[in-house]
């Protein structure tokens, strides 16, 4: 049976967009968590970490309720921005951002926290602002943590299933990602096709991890 490449491309598109957006959102957030003395920091950390402990279906269910046009927020989005987040690719991206947030934030935060405090202090005594210190001194010296965040986010988004099913359903070309396609094919007893999708994801994930570990070794040596 010929393989439909659409779910694979959709999965890669979703994972790439999520990773890029989470780099833009997650790195500043991780930096703030690593460097600030904000008293309510544990509350923010707990909220960011929730997707790690909650079943994907729980996160998906609440996001479905929130994004639904029947809810205040969903209706507002539809009315003012003409944006429907349930059963759409945009909805999958937003849900993936929330769900994969800890996979970007935690490694970067840990990487920054592990740098010697004296580097930051030295930059300050050299007259550098906290933001310039972050971009010129701290982030360039925690590339392995950044790479780990990128690969974990990408890989985690590729493997999403429960959340995607709850928010996106199974719309070919829009929300039918590889993991959903595998599930469909197994339900239809098309094991060969399911195997092709699964093997592709396995090979892809392994190749990405291998590449990252090689690159990581180079930047840390």
């Amino acid at each position: 049976m010929p393989i439909d490449w659409e779910p694979i491309w959709l999965t890669l598109r979703l994972a790439s967009i999520t990773t890029v957006l989470l780099l833009l959102i997650g790195v500043p957030l991780a930096s703030w968590l690593a460097l600030s003395q904000f008293r309510l920091k544990p509350v923010v950390e707990a909220i960011i970490s929730l997707p790690l402990v909650l079943p994907p279906s729980v996160v998906g269910f609440y996001l479905l309720l929130t994004f639904s046009p029947a809810s205040g927020f969903g209706a507002w989005l539809l009315h003012h921005l003409n944006l429907q987040l349930v059963f759409s690719f945009e909805g999958l991206v937003v849900a993936s951002l929330l769900y994969s947030l800890p996979f970007m934030v935690h490694p970067v935060q840990a990487g920054l926290e592990n740098l010697p405090v004296s580097w930051r202090e030295a930059a300050y005594t050299l007259g550098q602002s906290p933001s310039r210190t972050l971009w010129r001194v701290l982030l360039p010296n925690c590339k392995p943590a950044l790479l780990t965040g990128i690969v974990l986010t990408f890989a985690h988004t590729i493997g999403e299933f429960g959340l995607v099913l709850m928010i996106g359903g199974n719309l070919p070309g829009q929300t039918r990602v590889a993991s959903i396609a595998i599930y469909d094919e197994v339900e239809l007893l098309h094991f060969q096709t399911a195997h092709a999708y699964a093997a592709l994801l396995l090979a892809l994930s392994f190749a990405i991890l291998l590449l990252v570990y090689f690159v990581n070794k180079r930047v840390t040596v």
Binding site: P116, S118, E121, A123, P140, N141
Partner: peptide
């Protein structure tokens, strides 16, 4: 207006 030489030098590896 200070210059600070830290005990561990605090040079930036990059």
């Amino acid at each position: 207006s200070i210059g600070y030489v830290f005990q561990d030098t605090a040079l930036f590896p990059n």
